[in-house]
Computed example of a mutant assay.
Amino acid sequence: MSNSGLPADVDEIMDLIGSWVEMSGYLKWNEQAKIKADMMNVRHRWSSSRVSSETLRGKCQAIGLVDDETTKVVEWLHAAQEGRQLSPHGSYRDFRFNQEPTP
């Protein structure tokens, strides 16, 4: 676990997302699709036993997401943890971040 309170793999992913946001100033549609796809394709990475909404919210704010973007990401987390489907853009449907989930 890092200082953020997130597992190392999720923390790295969120740092990557933060670098994307820093470059463009916002969370673009394709970046949103990648997050949703990973939440669907690697559900165990985002399980409630590993990632709490409060901790993820704090990390989203720390990496520069605005309130609306943070709310979206946390809502996607809740949906994934509840077993609901997220609908990433078709070209990103099979996307997975390279970071291996840590125990």
Rank of each mutant, 00 (worst) to 15 (best):
Q99L: 00
C60T: 05
P88D: 07
W76E: 07
S4V: 06
Y26H: 11
N30Q: 13
Q81L: 05
E69A: 14
L86P: 01
S87L: 09
R93F: 07
P101H: 01
V74K: 09
M40T: 00
P88F: 08
D68G: 13
R50L: 10
E100W: 05
S24G: 02
E69K: 07
A62R: 13
M23G: 09
K36T: 01
N3Y: 09
E69S: 13
D67G: 00
A79W: 00
F97T: 00
A8S: 14
R57D: 15
E75P: 05
H89F: 11
E31C: 07
S49W: 10
G90L: 08
D15S: 13
S4C: 08
K72M: 12
P101K: 05
G25S: 05
A37D: 09
G25N: 02
K72G: 03
N3E: 15
S53E: 11
Q61R: 15
P101G: 05
V74E: 05
S24C: 10
P101M: 07
N3M: 14
A79L: 07
Q99Y: 04
L16I: 01
S52A: 12
K72I: 08
S49C: 05
S24F: 12
N41L: 06
N30Y: 14
S48R: 05
P101E: 11
V73H: 11
D11Y: 04
D9G: 03
Q85F: 03
T102R: 07
